[in-house]
Design a protein around this nucleic acid. Structure first.
Lengths: 342, 342
DNA sequence: CTGAAAGCGCTTACAG
DNA sequence: CTGAAAGCGCTTACAG
């Protein structure tokens, strides 16, 4: 037999409504009644039926993580952070893939959102920078928070870090090591972060009075493959740069592989820097110096925003636009000392 | 205004029950009525409320993926495979972390299962080999399928591959390359797969008439750290083996790092093999020869089993015990030719 | 083949 | 501070 609110009410000698009040932590219940209810709840091991609650109220205690490419390393950290915070708040997390390659992805998404009454949705790049996706969610009346969006900052709450500042800090690290000729591999131009990272690089170079050689600036697409191709283009030059800053770790990894192939010592012959702290950046040899994004913390903050009742009413409140700190992680691919220690 | 079954019934000139029949694909509806209903469903863009359906029926169309360490690469492939198959079948997937470090994890899990009426649960190692976890799920009356379980094959449906056969095939690959002195690093003894992989290694060595030198067999714990430590122990020997077979890619990666540190050429000085096809195995330099587990396919098969109505009635049916094919993926860490081509 | 009634287990709105 | 009634939107069990 499944224990329902009626059983609890009967045994505690109160109405179902009072049990409901206690369960949901509402005020206006006399302490003795509250305790009686709580005792019976424990005795009977009562668990409110999530579906009944969702049907009669407007809340589902269900948050959706909308994903594009679930296999990406990015998603794993974000997911873990969101999941743990959900658990702490008694929410559950649903993962919903959005297949933008399907012709009718928008209708499918709208249908899913209509059937499942999520309390909120979280989106990561590149989905969170896709206006068409955002529109479907907005049309469904679903509150959402973007994690690491590229722009459009007035559109919804978000949690992000300062990509330009981070790229500048990485650039200053390379300059401090004595590098003057620094190659740069930009990311996929469809990602807003790409432009920001490049801007940070340019700013730091200018700040140090160094010229950016246009021949040493390449445009990749965040894939290892593009890192391989552009790494070969950069390191194959007669006047190859002494350092390469790739806009993400996958591309940095491609450059690292090319260096190995060309029998160049890293970091002695060429220093290589990445961005993201992808799992592969640690696994590479030497491990790749990178920018650690607080991905789990960003996701946890997204959950906090979505579960804040004020977010529905005042989505424009600055507390729902959060900027978290990044960290420069120096590893063996740029630092000879780190290399020797490993 | 949200469209409900009543609106559809009224407009189609039938009862709500008939709409329900059409929506759920039941038989016994006259074709003309069925079509009338379907037309109205399209016109009104009707989406049945998932919570109402779950409350009144015994089905939730919700499958749970129970996870231990969501950050592991293993989980990402499994998750993607399960997610896509769920989507194809109009199921949704909930991710539930189980925190076995918490004192009351069992009560928390039982509570979650009581509130959410999942239609089924999927478990991966090491959770699926934890009898206490399985007991909580069984007590909740929830059907579950284990993905890559280590043993206890009569307990529930499962999908797995043949670890011993795969390890034997890897060993034969190394032998075929001319290796005679092969070091072996076993996995965490708590995982049943560890013993199976070791058995496969031994069998293939015996089959080739080669002796297994006990001094070259080490016990690790599946971590990069243990690969580093045991790799150093193996490769630091005067009579170091010409090949090392680590029971997973993370440990193989550790060995690879040690080889780089010792300035040993891979695979010329030492060949290194792993197991799992972890993302890092491809990212390493040289890329690591490994066994590709059909993780996504295993997860998809788990969804198929859970959504098969017969599984509830005849869980012992052999169709719910599936063995999928693995694949030996030869890469540069063992094959000089693959190394040259990369 | 079809439908009216009852019920799933909660919460909302209202009354006191 | 508390409760009786109605309702959320479906499906089940029953009747015809």
């Amino acid at each position: 037999m499944v224990v329902t609110i009626k059983h609890v009410a009967e045994r505690a000698g109160v109405s179902a409504k009072t049990v409901s009040r206690v369960i949901n932590g509402e005020a206006h219940v006399r302490p003795d009644k509250r305790e009686a209810v709580m005792r019976v709840v424990r005795e009977l091991d009562y668990r409110p039926n999530a579906f009944a609650r969702s049907l009669s109220s407007s809340r589902s205690y269900l948050l959706g993580l909308l994903i594009d490419d679930p296999a990406s390393g990015y998603a794993a950290d974000v997911q873990l952070g969101a999941l743990m915070r959900c658990r702490d708040k008694s929410y559950h997390m649903l993962i919903e893939p959005i297949e933008r390659r399907d012709r009718d992805w928008a209708a499918a998404l709208a249908g899913t959102l209509a059937m499942l009454r999520l309390d909120g949705a979280m989106l990561t790049p590149p989905l969170c920078d896709d206006g068409a996706v955002l529109k479907v969610i907005e049309d469904a009346g679903l509150p959402y928070v973007r994690i690491a969006p590229g722009g459009d900052e007035d559109r919804s709450g978000f949690v992000r870090m300062d990509d330009a500042a981070a790229a500048a800090e990485m650039t200053r690290h390379l300059i401090a090591l004595g590098h003057r000729q620094i190659g740069f591999i930009a990311g996929d131009p469809a990602h807003n972060a790409s432009a920001k990272r490049y801007a940070g690089f340019r700013d730091a170079m200018a700040e140090a009075g160094l010229a950016v050689d246009p021949a040493l600036v390449m445009e990749g697409d965040f894939s290892v493959r593009s890192g391989l191709a552009l790494g070969e283009a950069l390191l194959g030059r007669a006047d190859r740069p002494s350092a390469v800053f790739a806009s993400n770790d996958d591309m940095a990894l491609g450059v690292l592989m090319i260096a190995a192939k060309l029998r160049l010592e890293v970091p002695a012959d060429v220093a290589i820097a990445g961005f993201d702290d992808a799992p592969t950046s640690r696994a590479a040899w030497p491990p790749i110096t990178t920018i650690v994004q607080p991905k789990a913390a960003m996701a946890a903050a997204a959950v906090d925003i979505l579960t804040d009742p004020r977010y529905r009413r005042q989505p424009q409140d600055p507390t729902f636009r959060r900027l978290l700190e990044y960290r420069l992680e120096i590893r063996g691919s740029t630092d000879p000392k780190a290399f020797a220690e490993a």
